[in-house]
Design a protein around this nucleic acid. Structure first.
Lengths: 372, 372
DNA sequence: TATACGCTTGTGCACGGACACAAAATTATA
DNA sequence: TATAATTTTGTGTCCGTGCACAAGCGTATA
């Protein structure tokens, strides 16, 4: 009859150490070792010391599989993001989340996604409350509406619920982790690509998009991108080489935008470059296509389907991407790893600034196993 | 006394279905369901049909945790790669493998790395034999030395051992998966960056590196990259705009290379661009630094530490990367997923063609959790 | 001395699935 | 019809951990 309590042979150096093994070595039962591991108290000081030493020495790591299997608790994660439509930026973040969800469902982690209207603070506030009502064990969010976010995160901190930011960060708040791009630097990169070989004294449009109230869309990312863009110009003293024209479009006013652009094009004959600091560069492309305007270098952000189409067809010269899927994926797994395995995360993780031309867009993917 | 056999409530739609649940529904015992799941035979046809239908309908997915825990088998993976030194290309692949190893060690997957001398076919052949002697359950390799690779893979196929290629592929061989870059396209991208705004009629050096026998280093990747480079030139009819000069250096002959380059620079006064098709562009950078030659656009491949240094300091204009860590990581996990979970893989997965300038190199990383 | 109480430790079951073995049901053979 | 052979099905144990509960032990109290 095989003795299941025998210590595993250590012929292969990396044979896993079990609680049982520790117990035998420390001359106690598995239960006592378990109590030490989980700091559950009720262990005599000398036993504790002895066990801790052995744990340390053998570098004991509990078997995740057994651990997850034995724990009955389900973890509820709630995700708070703007409404997403197929092919847009937030959709990609959600794709990453879904993928992570699949992976961590083994660990008894479940996810619920709440989507607010990114132009409505009320919508955010309402869902923030709904989120709290769901008593989640962890939260992933895109921090829109600073004041509301502060209110929410304060509450979460009080309840000891870890939360993760994606897309943009809120300094001064103690999140578990943040995944997003350094906006300033990505604007700097955009400038490099735009100005690398643009003929001198030409005009460049810097396009922003406003919402109703006149506030810029895209939290404060777009502003920082422009700062980065301008920083590049300053760095290489190009202020006098190009004429920069700032253009403000309005999210909801399609025809107004067209008129406005028409006017800009009338005023400026030598427009050779256009950069848009949010993800809607395809709108500019639409405008140019319709009027058969060519030879303008378009640079924009994010791989929206429509952007990618224009990139492939050569209307857009370059897109800068920030791996939204990975932001979602890593954001969620960070929470799961924290909850299920008590693993820490880097508090801030900047996404690479990916440069996409039509020449390298085809092989650009985030997961090798993607099917869609 | 709680009845552990009761069917879990389905209040939450995604409560996991267990074998037990299936068993109750099909009016059989768990053992019978298990036999059907594993196609182990010895099940009456009508029972089998009934059980299969229920499995299908409830979309039964076995719990990975329990599965791994219950299987006692250890899986041995063997990795066959060129010798790697800190900071070089193969090192990065190994880093990815190590990371994957950590992750899959939970699944009782163990890994052993064999490293051959990439300039010695004998070395490869010897280790190929050692590999077979280790009776691995799966193999990851960089397919150097075509003939030897064919010999090895033939043997592996006969023994039904799955294998994965990284870096370069061997068509016509039936590997589980291949992870690497489309060399031709990456050369095409390099050309775009090189020629985007290079003044006309300047000279460009296309540099290769040979080994002893006069054979190009880097399997056939470098050749394909050059093809891609030239394809771009043809595509945009730039043949007459630039003077292309092919240069062959020798891996082991440092001083010979210098002399050769000196000669080239004597012959050609207007060199404005240099591209190297393997990862040793830093050697060119060394050469130029030493002689204080400036204003030459250097483009190369792979983020070797020395390359990155030169990129950051502005000596190298652009590096093209192919995510070696991910190649290793995904290669290994593909094997582990196949063995431990019978999950398939995409047979071919091309890595993105990452474009790195000094402006976006800092945030470029592969894993968010990297510490080193 | 008996009882109670606190501290410490040991034991056993559960998690879900794999697999070996036992047991039943069915069919074949004498 | 009884028995053996075969097919089909059921049962129990193990994997490593978490946790509830029981048990042991020493000390204080009545």
């Amino acid at each position: 009859m095989p003795d299941t309590n025998e210590i595993k042979k250590t012929t292969f150096s990396d044979d896993k150490v079990r609680i049982k093994d520790i117990a035998v070595l420390a001359n106690v039962s598995a239960g006592t070792v378990d109590r030490v591991i989980h700091n559950r108290g009720g262990v005599a000081p000398d036993s504790k010391k002895r066990i801790e030493d052995i744990l340390q020495e053998l570098n004991f790591k509990p078997n995740r599989m057994a651990r997850v299997l034995a724990i009955k608790k389900d973890y509820k994660l709630v995700v708070l993001l703007p409404e997403a439509a197929q092919g847009d930026y937030w959709w990609d973040i959600i794709k990453g989340i879904k993928r992570a969800e699949e992976e961590v469902s083994d660990y008894r982690v479940k996810t619920e996604v709440l989507q607010f209207n990114q132009y409505s603070m009320e919508s955010f506030a309402t869902l923030a409350q709904r989120l709290l009502d769901l008593t989640p064990d962890g939260v992933l969010m895109a921090p829109f509406f600073r004041r509301e976010v502060l209110k929410l995160t304060k509450e979460l901190e009080e309840r000891n619920i870890p939360f993760v930011f994606v897309d943009s960060n809120v300094e001064s708040v103690n999140c578990l982790a943040y995944y997003g791009q350094q906006s300033h630097q990505s604007g700097y990169v955009a400038a490099k690509i735009m100005l690398g070989n643009l003929e001198k004294s030409s005009t460049i449009l810097l396009v922003h998009m406003m919402r109703e109230g006149g506030e810029a869309i895209g939290s404060n990312q777009t502003a920082k991108r422009e700062e980065g863009f301008l920083a590049y110009i300053e760095k290489y003293s190009l202020e006098l080489s190009y004429q920069l024209v700032r253009v403000n479009l309005h999210a909801e006013d399609e025809s107004g935008n067209e008129a406005h652009l028409e006017e800009i094009f009338r005023q400026h004959q030598n427009i050779r470059g256009i950069i848009m600091f949010n993800s809607r560069i395809y709108r500019i492309a639409d405008f140019l296509e319709k009027r058969k305007i060519k030879n303008i270098r378009l640079i924009g952000y994010d791989l929206l389907e429509r952007n990618v189409q224009y990139l492939k067809s050569g209307v857009i010269e370059c897109l800068i991407a920030q791996r939204p899927q990975l932001q979602g994926y890593y954001g969620l797994t960070a929470l799961a790893r924290r909850l299920a395995f008590h693993q820490p995360s880097k508090p801030v993780c900047y996404m690479p600034i990916d440069i996409l031309f039509k020449e390298n867009i085809n092989d650009y993917k985030v997961y090798p196993f993607d099917v869609d």
